[in-house]
Design a protein around this nucleic acid. Structure first.
Length: 875
RNA sequence: GCCGAUGUGGCGAAAUGGCAGACGCAACGGACUUAAAAUCCGUUGGGCUUAAACGGCCCGUGCCGGUUCGAGUCCGGCCAUCGGCACCA
């Protein structure tokens, strides 16, 4: 051997070999309905990864964590006979790609092509079983043609509040349809990022900085394209219920949508009526002042002459503050009296009207009633400006009523006294409605989606402007490709780079093209649909493939057995049980979607929104796109810190594969710990898993005199011993159940136990190896394919059926029983399986250690759990 | 402040309310080897007892309480760490 490290088994030769074979035989191609080799008798399973941005840095070990999990599921499901859709593609439009292009001074078309090639090579080297014939790229005209087409569907729709559905704009019977379109243009205070030269959605701004790059973001009014996602707020909220998603993600989405129920209340002022929103109408009697947002236009109308200057100064001061400064909680409350008064409708009290920046124009009505006794912010404000404070809610006995913000009992409120808060809310709201001075009301934190960007690398809007009005580009003109620009950098002024392409802009004599582009999320809002039918040039997805892969109506073909894995006692009963599957086809959508938690309120909310529009318009068969969602946990560096260039702790998958092979890499990623948990990388851990695979190899292969690997003489066609029989069936049972529950770490543990048990055996039964190889195949596809071939077991391992187990082989004649005294372990006894409870009790009481522990005390009770334990309770 | 998640050996972690620490890493001891690597076998939560071994005993899953014959697991209350939201009325 040379200085090169000796490989524990020849993964460096066999892994590329099998990858080539899989490519050449189209081993993982999933035929669509109607296609050759499509088997309609089999149920479908759609298992999807969140497709990556092909960044210049290539893969890091975080990417393949989720990808390996989905690949194991895909391979496992195929072995169970499912038609498995397991695709991969590239989310290549958007800021990261464009920033990279600018940084490297290359055109994004070039960098994207290179980055995609790099990612693809890396993914292939890990041996993922993607159906590469379905590969898609959001920047291909053949793809974004349909992104633009879907935009037009949205543009040509409105949300009918009666039906609570999106409907074609032609059904709108009101005035100007442009007022109700789901895609509209509005002058809004946007998040403008000077550094990136573009506006950003609320979801893309974190702590006043851009999510991409971390650059400062300022507020600035601009005319922009918006998508009316708020119309779907209730459905986006309600339909979360039925989804099999982590509670934490559901909570994040609920939080982001931020639904609040309450009431609008009208306060009369001299010149007008001011409406406030409150979630606590039951505290109306406690309103001792009113506060308007400084930007509220009504301020101009009501401000009195001698307060005019102070108000103007305050408004100027507020306008100059950044969002970050304004929302700084630590700062003191500020505000100015307008000189005006409002009348509280419930008691005709005259209360002063203030303006203060703790009231936001963008939420509710931009006006609040100040109830200092029962709101922390109002209390702080009232104390600072010496405004009156009136208790109107009695707190529970052990708590102070002043500053109590929970639910209590109404006091000092003539109409409501003695009522618990929820009842009081109802009563006062009814009263407000009866008197025409208020109504039930619901508000959301969710804002409409700011959908345009002043960047080059995105889908151009299929929209033209004529006489100051927008109109849709005819479908026949899709895809609308962006102009080929030499200089595609942001202009910095807010004018999109596309505006530089004078010829491109000019659509006709009197019409010009829209020059904004769509945000990076557009392509990822529907890519999972395109995977169903990626080459279709007539539709965004064919109806039949969409129904098959995204539908949920193939119940009759489902592989389920609700009896689960429990077995009847009688060996005469059917021996083989197909395990209960938590991964079975559930009604509708992608059956399993794995990706990072960072998309909780971005991609996952946007995609649900688009999907619902498409559903309402009859283009897709189910209302939700992703039935089951799992987030993989972040992988930290060996030092326990987040991987980053800064710490020099980034692990490159290819470096690991070079030394230990792709199978070891895959297995280690899964062996580290629970999929959803954050966990640190450990090269030593990879080595351990690599040793395990090498033991599997040497169980079947041995080196001859010439240093060649040949089939081991120990492998023989012999019967399994009883113990081997048992561990084999136990392993099938555990590995199957663990894959179903995505507990890949313990599945691998069980296979290690299995291999350890056979390592010492004088002869290795080929039958046991056969079972092991199939079980291990989803985890380590290369080594198992090679060993399957070497053992000459017939066919390709990917065409085998998943092994079944027989509960009968798991039971023993004798079992070990735990004996406790007062819940403490004292001894273990081996007893016959069929020992009666009375026999168990007698045996336990006769036990010497038990007698010692009892020490003559009277026995009060004996608990017998058959096949498990005996617990003796003394006085 | 609100919402969510997590606390178990030296480390990654296992444990349908029933033997805490499976499996792996690290460490230590042994076999093989001229030697090393690789491989194989063994030990390994803490403490007490014992000359030593065997054996025996006590303690131990963030903290305090509760339910139970029995709690890492269920319930109540705290603490800590991480993530999200945050003047949202």
């Amino acid at each position: 051997m040379s200085s090169e490290r000796r490989k524990p088994y020849p993964f460096d030769r066999l892994e590329p070999k099998w990858q080539t074979i899989w490519d050449e035989t189209r081993a993982f191609h999933a035929p669509n309905p109607g296609e050759e080799k499509f088997d309609p008798a089999q149920p479908k399973f759609y298992v999807l990864d969140m497709f990556p941005y092909p960044s210049g840095a290539g893969l890091h070990v975080g990417h393949p964590e989720g990808y390996t999990a989905t690949d194991i599921i895909a391979r496992y499901k195929r072995l169970l006979g499912f038609n498995v859709l397991h695709p991969m593609g590239w989310d290549a439009f958007g800021l990261p790609a464009e920033q990279y292009a600018i940084k490297t001074g290359q055109h994004p078309v070039v960098t994207t092509r290179e980055n995609v090639a790099k990612f693809k090579t890396q993914l292939k080297r890990i041996g993922f079983s993607y159906d590469w014939e379905r590969e898609i790229n959001t920047t291909d005209p053949g793809y974004y043609k349909w992104t633009q087409w879907i935009f037009l569907q949205i543009y040509n729709s409105w949300f009918n509040p009666e039906t609570k559905r999106a409907e074609p704009i032609s059904t709108y019977r009101g005035g100007d349809p442009d007022d109700v379109r789901l895609a509209y243009v509005a002058q809004v205070r946007v998040n403008w990022c000077p550094e990136l030269g573009t506006v950003l959605a609320n979801e893309e701004v974190i702590d006043g900085k851009s999510e991409v790059g971390g650059f400062p973001v300022v507020r600035r009014p601009m005319r922009q394209w918006m998508l009316r996602i708020t119309a779907f707020a209730d459905r986006l909220l309600d339909e979360l219920e039925g989804l099999d998603w982590p509670d934490s993600i559901k909570a994040l989405q609920r939080n982001w949508i931020g639904r609040s129920e309450g009431a609008d209340v009208d306060f009369a002022v001299a010149q007008a009526t001011i409406r406030v929103f409150t979630t606590r109408p039951d505290t109306l009697y406690g309103a001792t002042y009113m506060v308007l947002a400084p930007e509220n236009p009504i301020v101009d109308q009501i401000t009195t002459e001698n307060q005019r200057e102070a108000v103007a100064n305050y408004r100027t001061q507020v306008a100059s503050k950044s969002d970050l400064e304004r929302t700084d909680l630590a700062k003191e409350k500020t505000g100015v009296f307008t000189g005006a008064f409002a009348i509280n409708p419930v008691n005709d009290e005259r209360i002063p009207i203030w303006i203060a920046d703790y009231v936001l124009m963008g939420y509710g009505t931009g006006a609040i009633m100040g109830v200092p006794a029962h709101d922390a912010r109002d209390l702080e404000f009232a104390r600072k400006f010496n405004l009156p404070i009136r208790l109107v809610v009695q707190a529970p006995a052990d708590q102070e009523s002043l500053g109590f913000v929970g639910l209590g009992v109404a006091i000092n409120s003539p109409l409501l006294d003695g009522l618990p808060s929820p009842k009081a809310k109802q009563k006062i709201t009814d009263w407000l409605e009866e008197h025409g001075v208020g109504a039930r009301s619901i508000n959301y934190k969710l804002r409409d989606w700011l959908f345009s960007r002043q960047r080059y690398w995105g889908e151009p809007f299929p929209v033209i402007w004529r006489d100051g009005k927008h109109e849709a580009l005819p479908e026949s003109e899709l895809p609308l490709e962006p102009p080929a620009l030499e200089d595609f950098k942001p202009t910095g002024t807010g004018e999109p780079p596309l505006a530089k392409a004078k010829d491109w802009i000019r659509y006709s004599e009197n019409a010009t093209r829209e020059t904004n582009t769509m945000p990076q999320w557009a392509g990822s809002c529907w890519y999972y649909l395109r995977f169903c039918d990626p080459q279709n040039d007539k539709r965004f997805v064919g109806e039949e493939p969409e129904r098959y892969w995204m539908g949920g109506d193939n119940d009759e073909a489902r592989m389920t057995n609700d009896e689960g894995m429990t077995k009847p006692e009688s060996p005469a009963a059917s021996s083989f049980v197909i395990p209960h599957s938590s991964l079975r086809a559930k009604p509708g959508g992608v059956d399993l979607y794995i990706g990072g938690v960072e998309h909780a309120v971005l991609h996952l909310l946007y995609a649900r929104f688009w999907h619902k529009v498409l559903f309402d318009l009859g283009h897709v068969s189910k209302p939700e796109p992703f039935q089951r969602l799992v987030n993989q946990g972040m992988i930290l560096g060996e030092d326990g810190r987040k991987m980053s260039k800064r710490w020099g702790n980034v692990i490159d998958p290819l470096d690991v594969i070079e030394i230990y092979g792709a199978d070891a890499f895959r297995c280690y990623e899964m062996f580290m710990g629970p999929l959803e948990q954050m966990k640190p990388w450990s090269m030593k851990g990879v080595e351990g898993v690599s040793r395990f695979l090498a033991r599997v190899w040497r169980l079947i292969m041995e080196e001859n005199q010439a240093g060649e690997w040949v089939l081991s003489a120990a492998v023989q066609d012999i019967e399994l011993t009883k113990a081997q029989q048992k561990i084999t069936h136990a392993t099938v049972k555990k590995v199957t159940a663990d894959i179903e529950s995505l507990s890949f770490n313990t599945a691998i543990s069980q296979m290690m136990i299995f291999v350890n048990a056979f390592t010492t055996a004088p002869a290795v039964p080929v039958l046991a190896m056969r079972t092991l190889l199939v079980l291990l195949n989803p985890f380590a596809p290369h080594i198992t394919s090679e060993l399957w071939e070497r053992l000459n077991l017939g066919g390709d391992i990917t065409a085998q059926r998943w092994p079944e187990y027989d509960e009968r082989f798991l039971v023993e004649d004798e079992i070990e029983i735990v004996v406790q005294v007062n819940g403490k372990l004292r001894d273990k006894m081996t007893v016959a399986l069929n020992a009666t409870e009375a026999e168990l009790e007698a045996a336990a009481l006769a036990n010497q250690k038990v007698q010692n522990a009892i020490a003559g005390k009277p026995v009060r009770k004996v608990v017998v759990v058959p096949k498990k334990l005996v617990n003796i309770v003394t006085a």
